[in-house]
Simulated assay, not measured.
Amino acid sequence: MQREAPPSAENGEAADSRQDQKEEREQEWEQELERSLKSRTVEVSAGGFHGRMVSLWELLFSKYVSEAKRQELLGKVRARSLELDELARLLSVLVQEAVQRSSTVKFTGLRRQVTASDLLDSGIIDKDTLADLVQGSKTVQEVTEMASVKRYLDGTGCIAGVLVPSKTDPAKMEKMTIYQAMWKGILRQGTALVLLEAQAATGFLVDPLANKKLSVDEAVSCGLVGSELHEKLLSAERAVTGYTDPYTGDQISLFQAMQKDLIVKEHGVRLLEAQIATGGIIDPVHSHRLPVEVAYRRGYFDQEMNQILCDPSDDTKGFFDPNTHENLTYMQLLRRCVPDPDTGLYFLKVFRK
């Protein structure tokens, strides 16, 4: 029985050469396709394009087109079943619809509604999540519950109240609001004030007994805090609602207010550190928290301030542990708290003297 001769080296080289040529042709075709898509433009009035001429390439890779949709359209162009004229028409319609829907899909922000488009611009959701929302395959509720989104819309929780041993049964812990603890002499007035200011500056004052979040005005009206603290807490709340630039009338952030000397630096550092410890710096214009890199970009934070907060000195440790008498950062004090098993709110245990 004759054996087949092994393939000659020449045959192998020929196959390799054909493969190389095929890959080269495919590469040339991809480069030609990219050039065509970059040179072909269409006028787009929706979104951030403002009526300018935009290349099909830019539209395909814009925030309005998901990865899956982009691959589907490119696949059709590569298979020559979709002409560039038709691609231009489809992309124009797609972007127009995505812009309209993304501005109507609303989330609950700290003080006002936030559009899905804004969350995308802030790096809180990605293009695919926006596409899912626009197409209805994901609901606002589902996206809100995503951990990566929830921290920027709701925060991760502040120091809500205190736990103290019960007078009648010291083995049991009694829940108190921070204001109650101050009036009962369990917390010093200064300690209580900075904790309440941190609550106001991170979103809302908290009624830990009723598990409610309230604005400063609401909290004073219902007696959660006394009217003697009203002005100081309103000032801290501006870290959420925004400070007014006296020169331009614009709404500006806590950090920007510090830069313009509208707020004392030590006070501002304390509130800023509390925001970061509870989920991120608050953008008062858009009414939600921001990832650090976006805060840098919007001028709500800088490297110098980041360094101050990353390497805290006694000057920037603005919070007092009533048990150990240490000066701490908000994050350090928050880590000493215990979460309530029913509400998830954080309580600081304070032992009576």
Rank of each mutant, 00 (worst) to 15 (best):
F204S: 10
A147T: 11
I263T: 09
T278L: 12
H230M: 05
V264M: 14
Q199V: 00
A171I: 09
V194Y: 14
L233H: 06
A201T: 01
G155M: 04
M173S: 09
L193Q: 03
G155A: 02
P208Q: 04
T168S: 11
V269L: 06
G279H: 13
Q180A: 00
I281S: 07
G185A: 00
L187Q: 03
T191H: 07
G279C: 07
V225T: 00
L214S: 02
L234E: 11
I252V: 10
G279W: 05
G155Q: 04
D169A: 15
L209D: 01
H230T: 09
S235W: 15
A219N: 07
I281E: 04
L209V: 15
L272C: 13
S166Q: 11
K172A: 13
K265F: 12
V240H: 12
A147L: 13
L234P: 05
P208M: 02
Q275F: 13
P165A: 00
P246M: 07
T248R: 10
R270G: 00
A277D: 05
G203T: 02
L214H: 14
E218Q: 09
K150G: 01
A171M: 14
D154M: 10
Q199W: 00
S227W: 06
T244Q: 09
I263K: 11
V194S: 14
A171H: 14
K175F: 09
D245S: 05
Q259A: 07
L272R: 12
L196Q: 00
Y179K: 05
G185W: 04
S253Y: 12
G190I: 11
T241D: 01
A160F: 06
I281G: 08
L254Y: 05
F255H: 08
H267I: 04
T191Q: 03
V269T: 10
G242C: 04
A277K: 07
T191E: 08
A181F: 00
A160I: 00
G268H: 08
S215K: 10
K172H: 08
D169M: 02
V269F: 13
D207F: 14
E237K: 15
G223T: 01
Q251N: 08
M146H: 03
G203E: 07
E218H: 15
L254E: 03
L262M: 11
K212C: 10
F255R: 07
C158M: 12
Q275E: 06
L195A: 02
M176F: 04
A147P: 11
T278A: 08
A192E: 02
S221V: 14
T156P: 13
A192Y: 12
G242S: 02
D154Q: 14
